[in-house]
Amino acid sequence: MRRLSGAALAGCLARQAGSAWRWLRAVSGDDAYESYQRHHAARHPGEPLLSRGAYYEQMQRRKWSGVSRCC
C-alpha cells in the first residue's frame, strides 16, 4: 500500500478545500461577475462592459421576475 506523506495529505486537503470554496462561490453567485467578465471577453470583446453594481442589479431583476422560490 502506498504511504501518504504529510505533505501529500496537506496538498490533497488543500485541493479539496479549494474546490469546496469554488463550489460555494459559484452556487451562491459570489463569482457571477467574474464569469460575466470572462464570457464578455470571450464573446463580446469591444462592447461596453457593465459595472459590478449594474451587473448585480440586472442579475437580481432577472432572477426575481420568474418563479425562483418554491413552497
Binding site: L24, S28, D30, S51, G53, Y56
Partner: peptide
C-alpha cells in the same frame, strides 16, 4: 450588496 461591495454575496452573508 448594491453599493458598498456590489455582488460580494459571501461577505454579505
Amino acid at each position: 450588496l448594491r453599493f458598498w461591495r456590489p455582488g460580494r454575496v459571501l461577505e454579505a452573508s
